[in-house]
């Protein structure tokens, strides 16, 4: 299928379906909107690195809003993305203008669904204390948890990607890895969790 033949609806469904279709549609979004880079930079004149960083951040945000359903499809994806990208690039431009030597915006916010669940959570303000804990998990556990919770692969696919014997083995590993991460969080937050 040619890339240009994907409708907005099929892109949204592909992103929400998870797994390989999530990855394919993410790269499709990356490819089809690259023309915006020149358009935005006609106005903002950022360095190649900064505009690419803003573009990548904008795409990650777009994908987040498609997944957490805060993007409802009322406007075209391209129009919606242009707004996100432009605003992200403006933030970068303003930061450059004020000579703040800060890294490009970190993607550290609750997404819409997580926000929705904050009412059933007590330790919502403790996030800053647990940043970086994923790094302590080790690569195999990280991969399994990312494939499960972020990319949305099915258990048999996770097994294949991580060279495990099958879906049951992947499920068991996911359980152990998640338990390990929760223990790291609990150890860091002490009585808060």
């Amino acid at each position: 299928m040619k890339e240009s033949s994907f409708s907005d609806q099929s892109i949204i469904e592909g992103i929400r379906a998870g797994g390989q279709s999530f990855e394919d549609m993410s790269m499709h979004l990356f490819n089809i909107h690259r023309g915006f880079i020149a358009k935005v930079n006609q106005k903002l004149h950022l360095s190649d690195e900064d505009i690419q960083d803003a573009y990548a951040d904008g795409l990650v945000k777009l994908i987040r809003t498609i997944r957490d359903r805060s993007f409802k499809g009322d406007s075209k994806i391209s129009s919606y993305f242009y707004s996100i990208f432009y605003n992200t690039a403006v933030d970068v431009s303003r930061r450059n203008a004020s000579n703040k030597n800060a890294a490009t915006q970190e993607l550290t916010e609750w997404d819409a669904k997580e926000k929705d669940l904050l009412s059933i959570m007590d330790a919502k303000d403790e996030v800053a204390k647990i940043m970086g804990l994923m790094d302590l998990l080790g690569q195999p556990c990280q991969r399994i948890l990312l494939d499960w919770a972020y990319y949305g692969y099915a258990m048999d696919e996770i097994a294949e990607r991580s060279n495990l014997s099958g879906a049951e083995s992947a499920r068991s590993m996911k359980y152990k890895c998640l338990k390990k991460l929760k223990r790291l969080i609990t150890d860091n937050l002490g009585s808060h969790v």
Binding site: W110, E114, V127, M134, L145, L146
Partner: peptide, 8 residues
């Protein structure tokens, strides 16, 4: 929930 957020 904190785990899910970190993974995301």
């Amino acid at each position: 929930l904190l785990s899910r957020r970190l993974i995301r």
